[in-house]
Nucleic acid binder design. Structure first.
Lengths: 230, 230
DNA sequence: ACATGTGTACTTGTTAGACAATCTAAAGGC
DNA sequence: GCCTTTAGATTGTCTAACAAGTACACATGT
């Protein structure tokens, strides 16, 4: 059941590789990706490269207009706010819903454990389990379209997370503690409180990242009260 | 400013035409769309047709696996529930948000007027302004990603609406009255009430459509109390 | 009769090379 | 220095073709 075979097309394979190169920072913000470049470097035909690029454009990871070269998206402060607010919209509703049935998804619990496990390593290692924590909450409502919508956001969200971690804007302990508390609130049926904590959780990351990018941070950037014993 | 010129690519043009043919019912549920068919009928090369088809697949209007012919999606009762619940997630949050600032978008008001204007004509004419009513509410929050996410749903939503109207499952007067009431609740700052009414509004359409498709309808299918004087 | 294997037709995945339209940036003229 | 022209690079689209996969009918063996 696990690891079902996947007959990936060449297009998908290249798209996946490009994606990971964007996430790893190998392809930096604003970097150009011409169709011929991609085609030659992967030794495929140009239409194939084109299709891969178009996939990433659809995901929001690349940007391009007609007849213009595709470039890695440049996230400004406004985009960051846009992204995090969209996240908050979806995720807070999801938490309320999950709390109603007191349904704590095991995958989220596991993801948080994984964050704890890597907390001594490189800061970028936190990104994957952190992302997984949030996606597993979304997936837990069991709505295909909602998961799909969230997926369309995930690429950009991950880009933001990479930035947050690279710049050490958040303490891993804090992430961990807040995730834990959110799960507890769901278990206790306190949806509204969970949604509020999530708003704080996301708001802090959001405003600190905005500030780090040269925007003016909102009040949400501050530290929380009481979760971490000084 | 209005009607800004659009240098549409051939791919986009074909995609747009196919889309409208799906919505109009000319291309029925489950109908096959071969790449060569599309290519010959529009007199373009197969790769061009392929790209168009892939666009519609990404939109959720067509369905296809690797090496298999693309087909118009077949919406079962489960899909309908999935779609409408996803809608409700986004839209109810949006209403709460709009009510907080008592922000009644003019486009929504206009859309509802347009519904009233066509109410004597063909039932399918209601679909476009009805869809516009809901999208304009979403767009009113001014979040690019949220609008984008909703767009990814719009294709399927519209398919559902076409069904609802074709089968005369809802009275236009009722749609109109509930839309009106929702706008009033927003204006009055009563976000929670607006969200609840929306849930009713969507829930009724949802369960009636489910029932019409052979699923078992939930309790939401019934008529409302008091909005329409008998 | 049933299950199994085979084969052919249809369809998609991918490639190659080519041309026109468009964008980008550098060279030149005022 | 600024604007225009020109050349190069890049994308949009096409034609033609082969490889690989799917589907369905057919034949085979039990």
């Amino acid at each position: 059941m696990a690891g079902r075979i996947a007959a990936v097309s060449i297009v998908d394979a290249i798209a996946a590789d490009l994606r990971s190169r964007v996430f790893s920072g190998e392809l930096g913000s604003g970097e150009a990706l011409t169709e011929t470049d991609v085609a030659t470097s992967y030794e495929v035909a140009r239409p194939t490269a084109k299709a891969s690029i178009e996939k990433l454009v659809a995901e929001g990871l690349l940007d391009r207009g007609t007849h213009k070269t595709a470039r890695v998206v440049e996230l400004g402060p406004e985009s960051v706010r846009d992204i995090y607010l969209a996240r908050a919209y979806l995720e807070s509703e999801v938490l309320r819903r999950l709390a109603r049935t007191k349904d704590v998804p095991q995958e989220a619990v596991q993801a948080n454990r994984d964050i704890a496990a890597v907390k001594t390593g490189a800061p970028l290692d936190v990104v994957e389990p952190d992302m997984r924590f949030h996606t597993s909450l979304i997936d837990a409502v069991g709505n295909e379209r909602i998961s799909r919508m969230y997926r369309s956001l995930v690429g950009e969200v991950r880009l933001c997370m990479v930035r947050v971690q690279s710049l050490h804007l958040l303490d891993t302990e804090l992430i961990l503690a807040e995730h834990q508390k959110i799960l507890e609130l769901i278990e206790g049926g306190q949806g509204e409180a969970a949604a509020e904590l999530l708003d704080e959780h996301l708001g802090r990351a959001r405003e600190r990242l905005v500030a780090a990018m040269g925007g003016s941070a909102g009040p949400e950037a501050g530290y929380p009260s009481g979760l971490l014993p000084e």
